[in-house]
């Protein structure tokens, strides 16, 4: 996606986000807010997967860890600035976990489908730990009563305030990730994704770059997890497991890998569709999302954001 197209899409997205509170009620605003948080989570996966071509199939580990750490820290009774410390701790914990995993995997030469399989196993382990370590995590029930976002006197628990906070964080993160993606760092990542051996032969410490990128990606996933938990008021094992790890891969693939905005759109659309369809018939949803995924992979491998580009190509009078 060219820079111009990306920024036009981005600006349109900001406009839609700004207009949304005027056209929907408080409940729907809350639904959209949660969908946007998952959109941020999807963008974090896309930042790594889209640039390097290496798929992490356990990204919910970092989302869930951020959520659990946020819940534990912000529920400490005598802590001032619970939200701030909770967010910082959540981001740091997810980043640290990714740095450790990334270090051993990337410096150990684990790549491609092997990385995917190992991270898939990590998601299973993480969920098992979340269920079994009930003294800390609350077991199957999880932790209830997580306080909403508040920075001193600034209370962000209202519908519009929490929506606005999430929207601003999403916009800032997307912009930051885009700038990194198209800057020198992103070009080197693309080069590593294309041919890692060649990138190393040009003087790049590929393992170090992959580890740092994976860490940044996980930090943002942790931030998304922390935000979600603060908004929902609870954290449970389904936020750290394999199912969510799979869903986020589907959101990115449907939205358009490597675009950052596409995964946000994918996450929002899929979740809205899931809620609508499940309200009619809960058992129908897995079938439908499976079919959509297969269709997208075959018909729109670059995701739904590529529809506009394809249309431009076939419209009469347009050269591209």
């Amino acid at each position: 996606m060219s820079n111009r197209t990306w920024f036009v899409t981005f600006a349109t997205g900001i406009l839609l986000l700004a207009l949304l509170p005027n056209v929907v009620d408080g409940y729907m605003l809350g639904v959209m807010r949660d969908a946007l948080i998952f959109g941020l989570f999807a963008a974090s996966l896309d930042f790594f997967w889209g640039r390097t071509g290496i798929l992490c199939f356990g990204h919910a580990c970092f989302f869930g860890l951020g959520g659990y750490v946020m819940a534990i820290v912000s529920m400490m009774p005598d802590l001032a600035q619970q939200t701030l410390f909770g967010l910082v701790a959540a981001v740091a914990a997810s980043a640290l976990l990714a740095a450790v995993i990334g270090y051993f995997m990337f410096f150990g030469g684990v790549r491609g489908s092997y990385f995917t399989i190992v991270t898939l196993a990590l998601a299973v382990i993480a969920q098992q730990v979340a269920v079994s370590w009930s003294d800390v995590t609350g077991g199957d029930t999880g932790l209830l009563g997580v306080p909403p976002l508040a920075f001193g006197a600034l209370d962000l628990s209202g519908d519009i305030a929490s929506y606005a906070a999430v929207a601003v964080i999403l916009v800032v993160c997307l912009l930051g990730l885009r700038l990194v993606s198209v800057g020198p760092w992103g070009k080197v990542l693309t080069a590593i994704g294309d041919n890692e051996m060649r990138a190393a032969a040009l003087g790049y410490n590929a393992a170090q770059r992959l580890t740092l990128t994976f860490t940044l990606s996980a930090a943002i996933a942790g931030l998304a997890g922390a935000l979600y938990v603060a908004m929902a008021g609870l954290v449970a094992p389904d936020l750290i497991g394999l199912l969510l790890s799979t869903e986020v891969v589907v959101w990115v693939a449907i939205g358009g890998r490597g675009t950052l905005i596409g995964p946000v759109v994918g996450a929002v659309l899929v979740q809205r569709a899931q809620q609508e369809i499940s309200s009619y018939n809960p058992s129908l949803w897995p079938l439908i999302i499976g079919c959509i995924f297969v269709l997208i992979v075959f018909l729109l491998p670059d995701g739904i954001l590529s529809i506009a580009q394809r249309l431009r190509g076939v419209l009469p009078g347009r050269t591209r």
């Binding site: 693309t190 041919n195 790049y204």
Partner: peptide, 15 residues
């Protein structure tokens, strides 16, 4: 071993 997803200039910059 050129990087096909980068432009010519980006290939040189990376080099």
């Amino acid at each position: 071993g050129i990087f096909g997803r980068l432009t010519v200039e980006e290939n040189l910059e990376v080099g």
